[in-house]
């Protein structure tokens, strides 16, 4: 996948049947969010907090639809108890997490949740697949969609700061 991986990622998710894009606004997911807003074929769901998106995706599955939750790593902490619903009900759960608080982070406020993102997700039984370079985005997301939607797993694709870059606070 080339420099334009966010646009290709959107096309890939849509081709995979995703029709509900849930998010709390986030710079790391800006292109996916904007594409979903401009796309009349999908539901673009702006949340007030990330945990709403977890339950939303369970409801989507009850109705036969596929959804994805787009969030920043800080939002992961807002979701944890609702993952009980996904694990307890074997609901497919796919989230794309734009990482903060990892590689090259310059804002110390982001560090605690960023460093804890993977351990807390794994503690809830969510499998984390990290992406560190643009060519890996497509194959990892393809694997993630298969694992979530076919095997009803809970999958978090971590879009690391090696991939998306660290925000400058200089």
């Amino acid at each position: 996948m080339a420099r334009d991986w966010p646009n290709e990622l959107y096309d890939q998710l849509k081709a995979g049947g995703v029709s509900q894009f849930a998010y709390v606004p986030d710079a790391g997911h800006q292109i996916l969010i904007d594409r979903s807003l401009a796309d009349p074929d999908v539901h673009s769901v702006a949340l007030t907090t990330e945990e709403e998106g977890v339950a939303l995706l369970a409801g989507a599955h009850l109705g036969g639809a596929k959804g994805v939750l787009l969030m920043q790593s800080s939002g992961v902490g807002n979701c944890i108890n609702f993952i009980s619903l996904m694990k307890g009900g074997n609901f497919p759960f796919l989230t794309l997490v734009s990482m903060r608080g990892d590689f090259g982070e310059g804002n110390s406020w982001q560090i605690p949740m960023g460093q804890a993102t993977k351990p807390v997700l794994e503690a809830m039984g969510v499998t984390c697949l990290a992406v560190e370079s643009a060519p890996d985005v497509a194959p990892v997301v393809e694997a993630a969609m298969t694992m979530a939607y076919q095997s009803q797993m809970c999958i978090a694709v971590l879009l690391t700061q090696r991939l998306i870059g660290a925000k400058s606070f200089a």
Partner: peptide
């Protein structure tokens, strides 16, 4: 009916995802 016995606070969001997925119901 999908009845929750946990995940308190999830019912309304779940219903929203369902309603979007099943517009004819």
């Amino acid at each position: 009916v999908y009845p929750l016995s946990g995940a308190m606070g999830a019912a309304t969001s779940m219903a929203l995802g369902l309603a979007l997925a099943q517009p004819d119901k």
